[in-house]
Simulated assay, not measured.
Amino acid sequence: MLYIGCHLSVSNGYKAMAEEALKLDANTLQFFTRNPRGSKAKDIDKNDCNSFVEIANKNNFSKVVAHAPYTLNPSSPDDRTREFAKEVMADDLMRMEYLPGNLYDFHPGSHVKQGVDTGIEYTANMLNQILKPNQSTIVLLETMAGKGSEIGKTFQELKQILDRVELQEKMGVCFDTCHVYDAGYDIVNNLDGVLEEFDKIIGLDKLFAIHLNDSKNPRGSHKDRHEKIGKGYIGIDAIARVINHPSLKHLPFILETPNDLEGYGEEIKFLRSLYNG
């Protein structure tokens, strides 16, 4: 079964978001835990969360993905910026327990000229402070395009973070096709080779979700500009190989393409037609 969905707004509640996914023929989804450009989060409504879980279970959803705000930078040289990231993510993980057994994705951060190694150490230290042995959520490091001083543009950088985390079983990776391509990995002509490298360095058992995006820019551009499926440099054929790859096809695929809901519905329908089951 193809588990495919898109990024949806939780502003009208979790139940409404799940119902929106069903209208799009989606069986997974992604949402921001709070304002993506700020820190405010809505109060938890337990009944709303329970309704979401009920709909997801009834309709055989895969794990869904919560996304941390873009404003967080756990690798920052500024003490208060790092503390803010820790506070928000710790609160998010507490809130995620109302939707147990799902995924929480975040960008590893930007080292801002202090060096990759220092930034990696800061991010790992934060994770060691906020992860709890009894949490049901898996926290995902996202593969990054390498824009500016972003950490996570190589599998090796993600591995360095993972190796420093004490609760290894609570960690995983989200593989963004646009980011990986923009970082220089040739998923168009050598998907098998890229996944073999990922497996050798990190391990495919640590891969929990895919952000399925085309790219507005050529490979190695380090730009991070998503494009609609089939409209960019990655293209339809390569995207089809991604969703049908035996090492990936069981994972939740999340569209973050520049679309409205109607556009997401069309992409989901099209991708289902490309899936070989």
Rank of each mutant, 00 (worst) to 15 (best):
D25Q: 15
A26G: 13
A26W: 14
A26Y: 15
T28F: 13
T28W: 15
L29D: 03
L29G: 05
Q30T: 07
Q30A: 12
Q30M: 13
Q30V: 04
F31L: 11
F31A: 09
F31G: 07
F32H: 06
T33N: 01
R34H: 04
N35P: 08
P36A: 11
R37N: 15
G38Y: 08
S39M: 13
S39D: 10
S39C: 12
A41F: 06
A41C: 02
K42G: 15
K42I: 14
K42M: 15
D43V: 10
D43W: 09
I44L: 06
I44V: 06
I44Q: 00
I44P: 01
D45S: 05
D45I: 04
K46Q: 09
K46H: 08
K46V: 13
N47M: 06
N47E: 13
N47I: 11
D48H: 03
D48A: 02
D48L: 04
C49K: 04
N50R: 10
S51A: 04
F52A: 02
F52G: 01
F52W: 02
V53A: 04
V53M: 07
E54S: 02
I55S: 06
A56H: 10
N57S: 00
K58W: 06
K58E: 11
K58S: 10
F61W: 01
F61E: 05
S62Q: 12
K63T: 13
V64C: 06
A66V: 09
A66W: 06
A66N: 07
H67Y: 08
H67E: 04
H67R: 11
A68R: 10
A68Y: 09
P69F: 03
